[in-house]
Every structure is written in structure tokens, then in C-alpha cells.
């Protein structure tokens, strides 16, 4: 399970890594020619260019230097993420974090994790590290976690703690929150590459059998009694589709495309997302 994340553009990186960057150095991709004195490395001499120079100056080839990237996963741990239907959301989040840690390790990138609800939850936070083991431990805790927070103020705190340098940020949530809050969150992330990971569950569509079900809001605790029948189920499915569209709209306004995981963690879906978009 690996996530072959890619970036749509170049980053500013100093440490040699796997991502296209604006830096120059030892990579394979030719960037441009420069006078020898700009980079006095005889191994980089370009004979053909030097001979062709009418002034007889020596030219060296400047190559691109791939750089490492800082990756952050922002986990929404509010009550709504506790929904355990067909594909329990905490498990999907854990799988995702774990795969991300392994991939980051292989690419030489560092991964930081912020878990938050109405505040940051230290037991689900991780400083940027290249070592996947600590992320794996965190994922293990996540698997059995029962998120019970309210709101997403902690996510905003996490956004403020991100480094100023461009990072790849995975915003992992079901986004069951007012659109204004999502906009606020995205505004805070404007300097970064953001992948909104929308974790939904097929079970949120409510089962097919008719009957009476009492639903308690996982986050705010309000309850609704529903007389479930086919008409109502259609209306709920409509609501969910509408919500999906509205979410997509909000993300697109900021230049992001949502990565929707509504059938559990699927590396194929995620990799397709990166192939299609970038």
C-alpha cells in the first residue's frame, strides 16, 4: 500500500529528494547552460557547447536537483468521524496515514500529523519525521479510537502551525461541517499544496429495509426519528449527492480537487487521483 503522490509544480527544496524542485544540482534533468565559473565542476563541462561558443568560454551543464518535501496529514477527529458503518472512518484514516508514512519514507520525505477536533489532540500529533514507525503507532491508536470532539477549531490551530514553506497537506475529514468553516480552513492553507481527502461511508446512505430508526448526531447529540421508506432514502441520497457537489465546488474555488474515499481505503483510487490531476 503506497501512495504515489506527486506535485503539480516545483517546490523549493534544499535537501535532495524525489520531487521536482526549483533548485539545481545533481539530478538527471537538464535545466540550462552556465559559464564554467558559475559552477566550477569539470565533470559537468559540456564539450559541444564549449566548442560552439564563439568567445571560447567554457560551459557547464546545470541539472535540476529533485528535493524532498514536507508532508502533513491533518486528521479531523470530531465526533462525526466516529461513524462506523461499512467502512469505519477511523480505520480508513489509519490506513491512509500508514500508507502515507511508508510512501514518505521511501521518497525520503518527512511526514507530520496533526489530529484535532475542537483542539489539537496531542496523542494524535506527530512532528515531521522520516521514520514511518511512529506514524504506524499513531495509526494503530487511530484504529481503535472513538473520536468524540465537536467542531474543527483544532484544525485551524493545526493550519497555523504548518511551516511557511510550501508543503503537501492532506486534509482528511468527512467535511460534515458548515461550508463557511471549510472555506476558512482552506484559506489558511493557501500557500500549500492541499489534497482534501473526503472520507465518507456507504452506510451513511441508510439501509434498504423500511422501518423506524432513531439517529443520534455523533457530534452535537441531537436526535431524529426517521420513518425510513424508499422515498426518504432517495431524498437522503439526493442530499448526499448535493453535498458532494457543493463540497467539490468549494474545493475547486480554491483550485483543489477532492479525493473521495467512500468505499474504504483504496490505494488504486488514490493513485488514480494523482495520475489524473498532476
Amino acid at each position: 500500500m503506497e501512495i504515489n503522490y506527486r506535485l503539480p509544480g516545483r517546490i523549493d527544496g534544499h535537501r535532495p529528494g524525489a520531487h521536482k524542485s526549483r533548485g539545481t544540482g545533481e539530478g538527471f534533468v537538464f535545466r540550462h547552460l552556465a559559464p564554467f565559473l558559475a559552477r566550477p565542476d569539470p565533470r559537468r563541462l559540456d564539450l559541444r557547447a564549449s566548442l560552439a561558443d564563439p568567445f571560447g568560454g567554457l560551459k557547464v551543464r546545470i541539472q535540476e536537483q529533485p528535493a524532498t518535501l514536507k508532508i502533513y496529514a491533518l486528521l479531523d477527529l470530531s465526533g462525526s468521524m466516529a461513524f462506523r458503518g461499512e467502512f469505519p472512518k477511523p480505520v480508513v484514516m489509519a490506513d491512509f496515514t500508514e500508507a502515507l508514512a511508508i510512501s514518505a519514507h521511501k521518497n525520503g520525505d518527512s511526514l507530520g500529523v496533526f489530529g484535532a477536533a475542537e483542539r489539537l489532540l496531542p496523542e494524535f500529533c506527530l512532528g515531521p519525521t522520516r521514520w514511518p514507525e511512529s506514524a504506524r503507532v499513531l495509526a494503530g491508536r487511530l484504529r481503535s479510537a472513538l473520536p468524540r470532539g465537536v467542531g474543527c477549531r483544532g484544525m485551524l490551530t493545526a493550519v497555523r502551525r504548518l511551516p511557511a514553506r510550501t508543503c503537501l497537506v492532506f486534509l482528511i475529514s468527512d467535511f460534515h461541517m458548515p461550508l463557511s468553516q471549510i472555506r476558512e480552513l482552506l484559506a489558511g492553507l493557501s500557500g500549500h499544496w492541499v489534497v482534501p481527502v473526503v472520507i465518507w461511508d456507504e452506510g451513511e446512505k441508510i439501509p434498504s429495509a423500511p422501518g423506524i430508526a432513531r439517529l443520534i448526531d455523533a457530534e452535537e447529540g441531537g436526535e431524529r426519528l426517521l420513518l425510513i421508506r424508499s422515498g426518504l432514502r432517495e431524498r437522503l441520497a439526493q442530499n448526499l449527492n448535493q453535498r458532494k457537489e457543493r463540497l467539490g465546488e468549494v474545493f475547486r474555488q480554491q483550485g483543489y480537487r477532492p479525493l473521495i474515499l467512500d468505499r474504504g481505503f483504496s490505494a488504486a483510487t488514490i493513485n488514480r487521483y494523482f495520475h489524473e490531476f498532476h
Binding site: 462525526s80 468521524m81 466516529a82 461513524f83 462506523r84 472512518k89 468527512d174 460534515h176 461511508d201 451513511e204 423506524i212 430508526a213 432513531r214 439517529l215 443520534i216 448526531d217 455523533a218 457530534e219 452535537e220 441531537g222 436526535e223 431524529r224 426519528l225 426517521l226 420513518l227 426518504l232 431524498r235 437522503l236 439526493q238 442530499n239 448526499l240 453535498r243
Partner: peptide, 20 residues
């Protein structure tokens, strides 16, 4: 309540239903 409470992620998603 007479009925067992099922946890639901966000009741805001549920359609308004007078019959219910």
C-alpha cells in the same frame, strides 16, 4: 426513547420529513 439510538455522522444531512 422507545428506540435504540443509532449514531449518525451528521444529522444535518438528513432530509426534512414531516411524516417522521
Amino acid at each position: 426513547s422507545l428506540h435504540h439510538g443509532n449514531m449518525y455522522s451528521w444529522n444535518g444531512l438528513l432530509p426534512h420529513d414531516p411524516l417522521s
